[in-house]
Design a protein around this nucleic acid. Structure first.
Lengths: 236, 236
DNA sequence: GTCTATAGCTTGATAGAC
DNA sequence: GTCTATCAAGCTATAGAC
């Protein structure tokens, strides 16, 4: 699914757009982001999107060609930002790992931190986008491929840094652990309302602080349990 | 989404069905399971399902009323089995935790084991079903609610057993850790093809043994890191 | 850039013959 | 139980006026 290649912007390099046009484009993207995140690609019609955006149906096709083109544009818009932030964070961490030197926790925090910061900074757009990522990540057949197309460079960068703090880890161990990380992280970001149900309304899916306090340590412990020595696990 | 209440079978208590009719019903369910898993509820038409099943369109409505009724029936069919197996496994473990006495690893294995066994035993039906679960689990708004309706009793049972091996854990810690477990586990079961892409084809999403060797220990380590003491984590 | 109008299909669902 | 036939509604996408 999707056909914009790699990390080059779909529709990039166009002549300068008028301010009004740019705003219209963004309104369509925002509405599409929200609705795709909630109901998936097929659960939404172009008409619903443009109605939500307050613009004419035909404009969606004018700006994005097809419904799929619109989906790709939504997916791409924030992927670019996300990738930049996470690469920068990993680079910063490698350059200066802090007091006790590099650690698994540190690397995971450097990777997850930017997303937590963005989430904490608020904005419905990002919340919707995270929910969309979780859905695509868990879509069989083309989900893995789509995630790979947009995010694999960052993930390979993460794996490189992880290898420096987990020198004995096998490739299999590292990749499976990343898969677990990916599932745990994106479900937490998706805000599905499950935690509300389980806790009888006492806890909130939107509690960023709660996730920040637990997720990096949870994930780092998992990596160490698998990638350091073997059963029984050793904790250096 | 969905409206069959609790764990009572939708359409249960009907008069005895003929064998041929029962087979037709199952064929529709199998096709629907496969296609819903691959493309989501809205990504599939009733016509595609019945075509795949080799039966007439009208029969889907005859047996299941609406498209949503069909979806509910698909979701319910295996949920019942899954719940029974997991409850039985947790009971067995509580009755006989094995040599070293009860442990976090043991509880997690008792919970995840039945799903790994079912997966290992093969059958496309179950693979499709797991993929469907992963999708619903990651669906915002109604995903959490739907999962809760079908699976919360088992999860509360799991949490009860976990409390006995993690006596000091707070409710918040336990529930967030479960949320991470849920995301990691279902993504691994969804076979999205991501691991193939990341490993350049050297690893397979369908490698049950690889998941069995790692996931329980990964998850147990995460629980211990969060639910035992506080930073820095202590490993008993 | 924006809108109207519409082409050309497909959809979920049902009525009724067999 | 199964199939044919069909309906009303909604869909993506486009052509062309402004």
């Amino acid at each position: 699914m999707g056909n914009s290649a790699g990390l080059s912007a779909p529709g990039a390099g166009r002549e300068p757009r008028s301010e009004k046009a740019e705003e219209t484009r963004e309104r369509i993207l925002d509405a599409a982001e929200k609705l795709f995140a909630r109901h998936g690609f097929y659960g939404v019609t172009v008409r619903q999107i443009t109605r939500d955006a307050g613009v004419d149906v035909a404009l969606a096709h004018y700006y994005f060609g097809t419904k799929m083109g619109l989906f790709d544009a939504v997916f791409f818009r924030r992927a670019e930002i996300l990738n930049r932030e996470r690469i920068a964070s990993l680079n910063r961490y490698e350059g200066n790992p802090g007091a006790g030197g590099p650690s698994v926790e540190g690397v995971i925090e450097a990777f997850v931190g930017p997303m937590l910061d963005i989430w904490a900074a608020g904005g419905n757009g990002w919340s919707n986008y995270f929910a969309l990522l979780a859905q695509v990540n868990n879509t069989p057949d083309w989900g893995g491929e789509t995630m790979a197309r947009y995010f694999d460079p960052v993930i390979h960068r993460l794996l490189d840094v992880l290898r420096t703090v987990l020198p004995g880890a096998t490739e299999e161990d590292l990749l499976w652990c990343y898969q677990f990380l990916s599932g745990a992280m994106l479900l937490a970001f998706a805000q599905t309302g499950r935690i509300e149900k389980l806790s009888d309304g006492r806890m909130k899916s939107s509690d960023v602080a709660a996730v920040r306090a637990r997720m990096p340590r949870y994930i780092a412990a998992g990596f160490r349990a698998i990638c350091v020595g073997n059963s029984p696990p050793l904790y250096p």
